[in-house]
Design a protein around this nucleic acid. Sequence first.
DNA 1: TCTGGGGTCCTAGGACCC
DNA 2: TCTGGGGTCCTAGGACCC
Length: 403
Amino acid sequence: MDAFFVSVEELFDSTLKGKPVVVGGRPDARGVVSAASYAARKFGVHSAMPLRTAAKLCPQAIFLDGHPERYREYSERVYEVLHRFSPLVEMASIDEAYLDMTGTARLHGPPLEAAHRLHARMKADTQLNCSIGIASSRLVAKICSDQAKPNGVLWVIPGCEAAFLAPLDVRKVPGVGKVTDERLHALGIRKVGDLARLEEDFLERRFGKWGLALAGKSRGLDAGGWFDTGIGEDTGPKSISHEHTFSEDTAVVAQLEATLARLCEKVGRRLREHGLRARTVQLKLRYRDFTTITRAETLERPTDLDIELFEEARALFRRNWKAGAQVRLLGVHASGWSQEAAQMDLIDDGRHQRWQQATAAADKLRDRYGESAVSLAASLRGQFRERIHENPVGLPGKSEKKP
DNA sequence: TCTGGGGTCCTAGGACCC
DNA sequence: TCTGGGGTCCTAGGACCC
């Protein structure tokens, strides 16, 4: 989808159309640009740029807080349109998808025709612009759709992959970021064609496994890396995490631990929604100077309970926080799903069972009255009410229904 | 510039086991 | 006294993506 978050916001406020718009937060907030309108991009504003930088480059831009629930809703509408064109759809992110169109020619016509129909249907049904890349591999299709932006359709005829890729900057290859780009520059490699001319062995010696993948990518192949699963294969999450950057750094223990509690509740809630129990709990701690540490511990018994996540996260925090040091960010990360869920209940102690019941009851209240209806963090947070605790995306009405 | 939040994958070292 | 080889699990950090 083209400038997805911005385009969705325009549907809710048509006066934004054509103006420089930045989604991500207030211009003086701690945060980065999630999406910038094409008018804002003309001033050099782009995703991942600090909001304060964006405000300097384009002070007249309209800065908006994001509305995740709106984007999720429109993402679902997008999926519905795509699914009418092929049963094999994979949403690669909230605004990006792959379709396997193999064997749909009789229904939709040849590739370009099918793509143009899809393009028109998308606009008609969602009022949103998208760009479409057609190719024989996912890698080339993705790069191709980037080249088609905005609002275009592009087809790389089978056999022409290498010729299409050769003149492009290596940075256009998914997986080549700032670091790889600089390392390649140092070797005199700037274009994908330069990369394709190198020996595989040379790349493997210099970049290891990643070098082999790079060699394949430079020739338009999916193998080795992020693209090697079938389209539409549903693989559940491998980790669940939440983190929070304070609007101002803090060293107040009560505030830090209350935030940890809130993060653990969010992680726990999502574990239970997915029916998962985590064996490993990881704490993330970022100080004022941006130095960041992670500290993990694997539990004897996997858990999906807020209280048990919190006890572990708090222990990690107390062991590792340089007391008195200003903290910028805290995070809680759960991973290592256990298959032994069923057996665990047999050896439960009473405390664990009581917490299970309490947590189930709390979930019901949250379902009815919103996420802040009941909270471990409530007893801890006292006077410290960071905005995260309240109503982060400004859901209308939710907080008023709070009992 | 002053650096979000949610993820995936990879590497490397150490503990531990046989 | 001078210390193998293979495997798994765990932890920490970092590149990268949207």
